[in-house]
Amino acid sequence: MLIVVGIKALNEEDHIARTIESALAALDPFTGKVVLADSGSVDRTVEIARRYPIEIVQLANTDERCCGAGAQLAYQSAMDADFFYLLDGDMVLDAEFLKVAVARLQADPQVAGISGVVVECNLVSQQYRISQQNTKHEEANVDRLDGGGLYRVAAVASVNYFADRNLHAFEEFELGARLTSKGWRLLRIGQPAVYHYGHLTGGYRLLWRRLRSGYSGGAGEVLRAALGQPHFKAVLLRLRHLHVGAVVIVWWMMLAGAAASAAWPLLAVIIAAPWAGLALRRGSAALGLYSLASWNVATLGLIGGLLQRRTPPTEPLSHKRLKSLATGTQTQTGIR
């Protein structure tokens, strides 16, 4: 088998049909399969997915639900393939990208994975407008494949597992840190890879959702996972959220000091300065304020993530196989 396209999804009934159709179309020139890894959807995601010639697996224990678990569950069906593409359930895969990425990986055995441009299609949320601002189109070696990518399975095998099942975010960064610390290269090319139809939720509601779901704790979880590991230095140097968290904690201390000493003019300056700087950077006072709020939420999450309990990341995820590609029938076989 050459390629497995793994789709991780949770309650994506609005998007899952076109996501699956795009994956099947992209896979058409190759030998492979599409696998839907569902994290316990309670909407029509699985019902819709059953119409297509794909495999469907579902997380057995929804208490284990997180971004890393969804990605690792998808990968567990790809270990016999040459390449694995990770796709979110609200994305559309560009078929031409897959052709180019396969050719590049076959031509350069030192490259562990290739990503392309993520095109944001829903710009209601401030978060996705900022993501679109930060999108880079030039080809470059990178430290992670944001938004999914095509990976060499042999490279993943050399670092023991695809995604850390404990991570609520930054699972792609964490994988990249392990791969590059092992000597592999990751490449981003300037070609569109996926079209992302992100949440239409407003930015501040999205921040609250990330705080409640544990997503904001991802950076702390990555740091804790790296303690004593070969990729620890890479995490410290490259994970920007750790640097932002350190700055925000110093900012909190300055705020507390100014308030404790009743230095109200200084307090006002300390509050306004980062907002003004971020507003200039984003080209908008509203986006600057949102960025400041996002930094604070991320720092709160960072602290919480450092305290989270961990399950060994090499332990397979228990799951139910809802549909087999060979038979098209439902089974209930779980594995550990």
Results as ranks from 00 to 15, higher is better:
residue 70 G to A: 07
residue 196 H to T: 11
residue 46 V to F: 04
residue 48 I to N: 02
residue 212 R to G: 00
residue 243 H to V: 08
residue 164 D to V: 04
residue 95 A to Y: 01
residue 4 V to E: 07
residue 131 S to Y: 14
residue 137 H to W: 14
residue 70 G to L: 11
residue 150 L to D: 11
residue 312 P to L: 10
residue 207 L to M: 14
residue 34 V to S: 10
residue 101 A to V: 04
residue 115 S to L: 03
residue 335 I to E: 13
residue 225 A to N: 11
residue 175 L to S: 07
residue 305 G to S: 10
residue 276 A to T: 02
residue 313 P to W: 02
residue 333 T to M: 11
residue 57 V to P: 09
residue 100 V to P: 00
residue 311 T to N: 12
residue 280 L to Q: 06
residue 28 D to I: 00
residue 132 Q to W: 11
residue 53 P to Q: 09
residue 278 L to E: 00
residue 231 H to A: 04
residue 86 L to H: 12
residue 220 G to Q: 03
residue 41 S to V: 09
residue 48 I to K: 11
residue 84 F to C: 13
residue 35 V to K: 04
residue 304 G to K: 07
residue 40 G to D: 07
residue 83 F to T: 03
residue 160 N to A: 14
residue 4 V to S: 14
residue 101 A to S: 07
residue 204 Y to N: 09
residue 295 W to I: 00
residue 273 A to V: 11
residue 81 A to S: 14
residue 182 K to A: 14
residue 78 A to T: 15
residue 156 V to T: 15
residue 63 D to Q: 15
residue 61 N to F: 10
residue 285 A to F: 10
residue 257 G to I: 08
residue 44 R to Y: 00
residue 33 K to M: 07
residue 126 Q to M: 13
residue 278 L to I: 00
residue 10 L to G: 00
residue 241 H to S: 12
residue 176 G to Y: 01
residue 21 E to T: 12
residue 217 G to S: 14
residue 42 V to G: 05
residue 162 F to G: 03
residue 144 R to P: 00
residue 326 A to Y: 04
residue 149 G to I: 13
residue 294 S to C: 11
residue 335 I to F: 05
residue 156 V to K: 10
residue 88 D to I: 01
residue 317 L to T: 08
residue 145 L to V: 07
residue 70 G to E: 03
residue 61 N to A: 12
residue 117 V to M: 09
residue 12 E to R: 15
residue 300 L to K: 01
residue 94 D to N: 15
residue 149 G to A: 14
residue 234 A to D: 00
residue 174 E to I: 03
residue 249 I to H: 05
residue 182 K to S: 15
residue 328 G to W: 05
residue 59 L to T: 04
residue 310 R to W: 02
residue 250 V to C: 07
residue 110 Q to N: 03
residue 118 V to L: 03
residue 58 Q to A: 08
residue 115 S to V: 06
residue 66 C to V: 04
residue 40 G to R: 13
residue 255 L to P: 09
residue 67 C to D: 06
residue 281 R to G: 01
residue 177 A to P: 06
residue 136 K to I: 11
residue 162 F to H: 14
residue 32 G to M: 10
residue 95 A to L: 06
residue 206 L to W: 09
residue 227 L to T: 06
residue 238 R to Q: 14
residue 117 V to R: 11
residue 293 A to K: 01
residue 147 G to P: 06
residue 105 L to N: 10
residue 220 G to D: 00
residue 172 E to H: 11
residue 290 Y to P: 04
residue 329 T to K: 15
residue 266 L to H: 00
residue 160 N to V: 05
residue 332 Q to T: 11
residue 305 G to H: 02
residue 41 S to N: 10
residue 270 I to K: 01
residue 240 R to F: 08
residue 63 D to K: 14
residue 257 G to K: 02
residue 18 R to T: 13
residue 223 L to T: 01
residue 79 M to K: 14
residue 92 V to D: 03
residue 22 S to P: 01
residue 263 A to S: 14
residue 78 A to L: 13
